[in-house]
Structures are given as structure tokens and as C-alpha cells.
Write a protein that binds this DNA or RNA. Structure first.
Length: 263
DNA sequence: AGTACCACCTGACGGC
DNA sequence: TGCCGTCAGGTGGTAC
């Protein structure tokens, strides 16, 4: 799941559950999930502290413990959070757990373990060092247009590139291009000013809609591609046929009828 | 700089 | 039933 909207929903969930609870113990079940911090330090440093606030940049979630100490959570393809008291509510692949003194625990669950968990001292420096571009939802149009004008290659590849814009992934890039009537293999350099504006507006609209609906596919508007991601499905916008292709080796769905290559 | 491919992991599903 | 290939909403490295 976790693209920007999912991570934003996780962040709000974190805020309404684990914030301001005193940490009694940190359990690291899969040390491989940790990055840039020793298991020993990660187990001990948060103890006695509480999470004071959260922040999100792209698909990265940060929870602040101190003025210069954040826990960073990245969810890969299968990560999620669960806050619970009763042990039988523990998710199936809990890899790291924060135990609070109210008897609850926050589990970082990640079946495929493709994500990472870290301790970060300098938030801005972390974003810089990890080559993350500006967050997709905090971008002004002028900056967006400037970035695009310096970018080359296929549109889908560009929007998937986290160093270009942080937060979009396979699903939401397809969704945005679907609503802009743009073929995913179109070249960035072929975009008109009007299309740039449309891409920007659509990006914001799609991300905000997904967050607003809690990333619950059932509640997405009827004309969204999500929910019709299968070959030969009927396009919910124009009745055309949904095609499946590979773009930079990722499965890509689009409507062959209304998404034409710009040239 | 862009692209193509492999690798990291686990699990679900379809075909034989 | 069991084995096998393929696929999955992410990212990092490497080679052309």
C-alpha cells in the first residue's frame, strides 16, 4: 500500500493513538528492519520518552521523541501500523513494537520487510542525504513547473522518482495520469503549459481525495482507476478498455482510448 | 541523465 | 496435494 496518502493516514492514526504515551520498552523482532542505528541503541534510546509530534515527507513518517531525535518509519510495499492492547490483535508480521505504560503497544508490521526503521537526529539533513525531492503535497505550482522543465524521460518514470517529487508511487501516478488523459509513456518534454497545470491540480486533488477517503477503495469516486486495475476492464471514465503494460518495469494500467501519447 | 535489470523479502494465486 | 512460476501500491545498486 504505502504511498503518500497511506502514510498520511498512518500519521493521523499515530497521532490519535500513540502520541503522548510513555514508552516502557522497545521490541525489535527483526533487526534487519533497522537502518543506520544499532539494535541496542534503538531498543534503549526511546525508553522513558514519549512521542511528541509526527511529520511526513513523501512516504517517510517521522515521530519526534526529543528536540533532536526522531523515529523514522518507511513502509516499503507491505508496511502498516497497529495500536492495540489485547495480544490477539497483534498483526501477523509485527517487526518492531513500542510498548507504552498504558498497556498498549504500537506495532510496525511489515510482511515483506522491504521498508526500514531508523533513528534520526536531523530531520532536514535526513531528507537531503536520502535524496528526497519536495513532498508532493507541499509543492507550489511554480516549483513544480520548474522541476518539470528540468526533467526528461517518460512521465510515469519521472513521477515515480522520489528525488524528483517525494510521495507518489505506482498506483497514484497511474491515477493522476488517468485523470489528465496522458499516456504513461509520454515524454515530460512534450508537456504543454496547460498540461503541467492540469497535472499539478490533479496530483493535489487525487492525493487529497485519497486521504479524505482514508485510502478506502470502496469510498473512492466512481470514475477513479483504482478498483479497475485489471487488463481488459472497462474504463470508468469513457468506457474504453484498460490496458496493462510495463513502464520502467512496473505494472502500469491505463485506458487506451482516452490516454493518448502526447507528441 | 535515463533506462533496464537484478536484488532484497514474504505470501498468494493459477497451472500442471 | 504439491511444486513452480509469476506477481505484488518500494527502493538501491550496477551497467550500458
Amino acid at each position: 500500500m504505502p504511498e503518500l496518502p497511506d502514510v498520511e493516514v498512518f500519521r493521523r492514526y499515530f497521532n490519535s493513538t500513540a502520541l503522548h504515551q510513555k514508552i516502557e520498552r522497545v521490541e525489535v523482532r527483526k533487526e534487519k528492519m533497522l537502518s543506520g542505528v544499532s539494535p541496542d541503541r534503538f531498543r534503549h534510546e526511546p525508553v522513558g520518552k514519549e512521542f511528541l509530534e509526527t511529520a511526513r515527507h513523501g512516504k517517510h513518517l517521522f515521530a519526534r521523541l526529543d528536540s533532536h531525535l526522531w523515529v523514522m518509519l518507511h513502509f516499503g510495499m507491505t508496511g502498516k501500523l497497529q495500536y492495540y492492547k489485547n495480544p490477539d490483535e497483534e498483526p501477523a508480521h509485527a517487526r518492531v513494537l513500542f510498548h507504552f505504560d498504558n498497556g498498549y503497544q504500537l506495532a510496525y508490521d511489515n510482511m515483506r520487510m522491504l521498508g526500514k526503521v531508523s533513528l534520526v537526529e536531523d530531520y532536514d539533513q535526513y531528507i537531503r542525504e536520502n535524496g528526497l525531492g519536495p513532498d508532493a503535497l507541499s509543492l507550489e505550482y511554480n516549483d513544480f513547473a520548474n522541476l518539470l522543465s528540468q526533467k526528461r524521460g517518460m512521465i510515469k518514470s519521472a513521477f515515480m522518482d522520489q528525488s524528483f517529487i517525494a510521495g507518489l508511487g505506482n498506483i497514484y501516478v497511474d491515477e493522476i495520469l488517468f485523470h489528465c488523459d496522458i499516456h504513461p509513456k509520454s515524454q515530460v518534454s512534450d508537456l504543454s503549459d496547460d498540461l503541467r497545470q492540469k497535472l499539478f491540480d490533479t496530483m493535489n486533488q487525487v492525493l487529497e481525495t485519497a486521504i479524505d477517503r482514508q485510502v478506502n477503495v470502496e469510498q473512492f469516486p466512481d470514475d477513479y482507476l483504482l478498483g479497475h486495475r485489471e487488463p481488459d476492464a472497462e474504463c470508468p471514465k469513457c468506457g474504453g478498455t484498460i490496458q496493462k503494460i510495463k513502464v520502467s518495469s512496473r505494472s502500469t494500467y491505463f485506458c487506451e482510448q482516452h490516454q493518448k501519447k502526447i507528441s
